[in-house]
């Protein structure tokens, strides 16, 4: 009879130990899981701007270290959600020595795709001074997309352009400052003043 009780006690003790190990193990696993998920799923992704810079001047350097263009403005706000920037009163200047310098201004701008695309909104003005090889250029529109790295400007809105003495209006524009090429894509109106005063015979 006695060893019956001792075998019962032994078996009971084994069972108890197993149960305790089981509960502790599950606690441990749950703890590990909770810690992991915390790193994987950060709290809701942050959309609100996380920093802004006032009266800034950002200079982009070319591969050879020379400045290619600079973007200055009254206020630059960073949006972490898509890593883009909103700029108030931006002034963009191309500083490339090889090409005639071009200056762009507008009310606001949005810089996306790590500075390779700049959308300018509201009273956009682009100015390029005349040089012996290229004409004086002034552009006015409500919206302009600038690709600073390829020196290309496009717009799908109405644009008013002054080249030396001639004034051109159109809807939709593509301008490549590198190849000095300009295209107006829709209903073009142009006015040419005779470049030189006519000697009437």
């Amino acid at each position: 009879m006695k060893n019956l009780r001792s075998t019962f006690r032994l078996r009971f003790m084994l069972l108890l130990a197993a149960c305790v190990a089981l509960t502790l193990g599950s606690f441990w696993i749950m703890e590990v899981m909770r810690k992991n998920t915390e790193q994987l799923l950060p709290s809701a992704p942050r959309v609100a701007p996380d920093y802004y810079v006032e009266n800034f001047n950002y200079v982009q350097l070319a591969l050879d270290g020379k400045p290619r263009y600079n973007i200055s403005g009254q206020r630059l706000t960073h949006n972490p959600a898509d890593d883009s920037f909103d700029v108030n009163l931006p002034v963009i200047r191309s500083l490339d020595k090889l090409r005639p310098p071009m200056t762009l201004r507008s009310n606001t701008a949005k810089i996306t795709d790590n500075n390779s695309k700049v959308d300018m909104f509201g009273n956009v003005n682009a100015d390029r001074l005349g040089t012996p090889t290229s004409s004086k250029f002034h552009l006015q529109t409500e919206y302009l997309r600038l690709l600073p790295d390829d020196d290309i400007m496009t717009s799908d809105k109405a644009v008013a352009i002054t080249i030396d003495q001639s004034q051109m209006n159109g809807v939709g524009m593509y301008a490549n400052n590198a190849t000095q090429e300009l295209r107006l894509l829709g209903n073009v109106r142009g006015t040419y003043r005779a470049a030189i005063p006519r000697k009437t015979k």
Partner: peptide, 21 residues
């Protein structure tokens, strides 16, 4: 007409391309 010579010329078109070089 001679007077045309000094007048500005206006152009209307669908598309326009300028090669400044």
């Amino acid at each position: 007409e001679k007077a045309d010579a000094d007048k500005p010329s206006n152009v209307e078109a669908n598309q326009f391309t300028l090669d400044d070089v």
